[in-house]
Design a protein around this nucleic acid. Structure first.
Lengths: 344, 344
DNA sequence: TATCTTTGCTTAATCGTTTAAACAAAGATA
DNA sequence: TATCTTTGTTTAAACGATTAAGCAAAGATA
């Protein structure tokens, strides 16, 4: 930061021959400052191109007006959109956000948290890495006395706010849809069991099968890291079964894409021979052939609600983490890959 | 920031009965402090879980140790990867980054810059929005006396560092490849002419055609915003021509995808009837059918170099913007969409 | 022994803002 | 007229670190 003779409050005060305190108050529209002075201050501030020193005000007031955001990655449509909406809501209230990526790594997530606490953020909005099991680093945030809001990937053990979709119910909606299409052997390529959202989807899948009196077979339930590569592998595994499934529900679109690639390569007709459903409604789900049926997670709402939840805390003087769980209904977007009577 | 009785330098000083200055110096490994004192300070700091107050040190030293990054959007693989690499390099040197998105909007870009300057970043690494023509807001950064490094989307008029690929040459490589494949009427769905990189690609396209004695026809050169939607439109427009092209070079992968969708829908064989080349090597280029030939932009290198360029300035006391233009060679990734003798 | 250097620390100012407390002047109330 | 309120401002002390300058004690040099 070169000392480009930046204008300070003192400079404005000198011009008008008043105290710095008066200038500060005038700029904050304090009721005890006369309109005349306020107007003059604003005018001079403009003339001198005054830019408040954020560091100084943050240091003094104890509020950095910065909110940290931690996501597994930004190059997913869901997270990019969520971030965008968080930003929109917070910007309006004068907050800026610092985005950090964990790249699904527990270690990086720890580093992210240290970084953000070091930067004196006023709060953190986070979605957890796949790898994360131990939660001590999140406890650090609570210990620092700033609000922590989790979304999409959260944990029950962590006693904090959470905004996400109803994963358990989503599985029901998906299975119902596949059954309606006439599917009888529905496989599930799931995420890691230890991650709450994937666990819920698995439970939903199992219960929905039972509801429809469909077989629940171990060979039809495969745990995956949900990468495209692993989606290919797991699909291959399903194809190797003596008794193949007639539908596959994949817990993530990237893995669903991998599965689709294998099906296309093996010239297996989708959805006629095997129906396919993904999760996340990534843009490419609508781009590939056939288009993949998927679940939309309301990135718009989730981002806004997360931001607003934070703002709720920021307005109170005392933080009483009150365990707000906001669960949204997910929306199944039915496309070619699961619509058996679809005519190309 | 709740006053969770955070440990300060003073607390450490009190425990050891020395001055705060000594503590500060000890923590910075000042040579004038004895090893004994340093050891004691480090121990107490650890015991009390001391976290330095970043705002205070930033205020005093004039360095926020924060670098702003402005990108058109984060949900593109190129930008996400670039950001990741910038972060990696800067983190090592104790810098953190603040990511902001312009969403290709000039207005948002202005707001981003204000935000970053307000946050007292030590430098800004930026890639410009499509909409941006006027450059006053970037001049603001220079006026603030902090380094500005541009990448991918820069402007000649702005006298600052730039890291990008050789767009002019990339067009040559693409056209050469298509000619090799036997294409004789090569169309170009380009980005906006006013944006430097797209302009360079257009110039390269034109010159390469001339080099091969191929016709340059106005109807084969269409300006686009490079969205998937517009890619569809422009492809449709090309198909409506009396004399259709036998190859289409699209300046962006998203638009190339739109073009491919139309071609697939119209049952036009790619690449047999019309060959297709995109730009940017987005992951989906490798996911769709047929896989799209595209140009890899070295997000890895670009991010690292941008960050290192910034670090170069940060180590000097005085900033002398020296107009470093670093141009990397792009790499053509040949895939099914342009390989005429490819057997599916 | 007298003087110079080095070592290891302290003091105090500073970064630019916010804010509690003080206070003078003007207006309201009794 | 004496006292209380209100209005509009100033003073000065923070916030938590960094850093230039000062200084005492110990060691080195002549």
């Amino acid at each position: 930061m070169a000392k480009k003779n930046k204008t300070t409050i003192k400079d404005i005060a000198n011009v008008l021959n008043i105290s710095g305190a008066a200038v500060s108050k005038a700029l904050h529209n304090d009721s005890r400052i006369s309109e005349k002075t306020k107007k003059a201050v604003r005018q001079v501030a403009k003339n001198l191109n005054y830019q408040p020193n954020h560091l100084a005000s943050a240091l003094r007031s104890g509020k950095s007006k910065l909110v940290g955001v931690i996501v597994p990655r930004t190059n997913s449509n869901f997270f990019a959109a969520t971030i965008h909406n968080i930003e929109e809501v917070l910007n309006e209230e004068g907050y800026n956000i610092i985005i950090t990526q964990s790249n699904e790594s527990y270690k990086k997530e720890c580093a992210n948290i240290d970084t953000l606490l070091f930067t004196q953020v006023d709060g953190i909005i986070a979605s957890m890495a796949n790898e994360t099991v131990d939660l001590n680093h999140f406890e650090k945030i609570k210990a620092a006395g700033i609000p922590l809001i989790t979304f999409d990937r959260g944990e029950n053990d962590l006693n904090v706010d959470y905004i996400g979709i109803d994963d358990y119910d989503s599985s029901h909606v998906i299975v119902n849809h596949l059954v309606e299409q006439g599917c009888k052997r529905i496989a599930h390529i799931s995420g890691f069991k230890r991650t709450r959202i994937y666990n819920n989807r698995i439970r939903g899948y199992i219960d929905a099968l039972q509801k429809h009196n469909l077989p629940l077979e171990n060979e039809l339930l495969l745990e995956s890291d949900l990468s495209t590569e692993d989606g290919r592998k797991k699909m291959q595994q399903l194809l190797n079964l003596k008794n193949r499934p007639d539908a596959v529900y994949v817990a993530g679109d990237y893995a669903a894409l991998g599965a689709l690639q294998i099906l296309n390569e093996k010239k297996i007709k989708v959805p006629q021979e095997i129906a396919l459903v993904g999760f996340g409604d990534e843009p490419f789900a609508n781009m590939v052939t056939p288009k993949i049926t998927s679940v939309n997670q309301h990135s718009y709402k989730i981002g806004r609600i997360a931001a607003e939840t934070f703002l709720g805390y920021s307005k109170k003087t005392k933080i009483e983490q009150s365990l707000n769980k906001i669960i949204l209904d997910a929306k199944l977007i039915v496309r070619e890959s699961s619509l058996k009577n679809y005519n190309l």
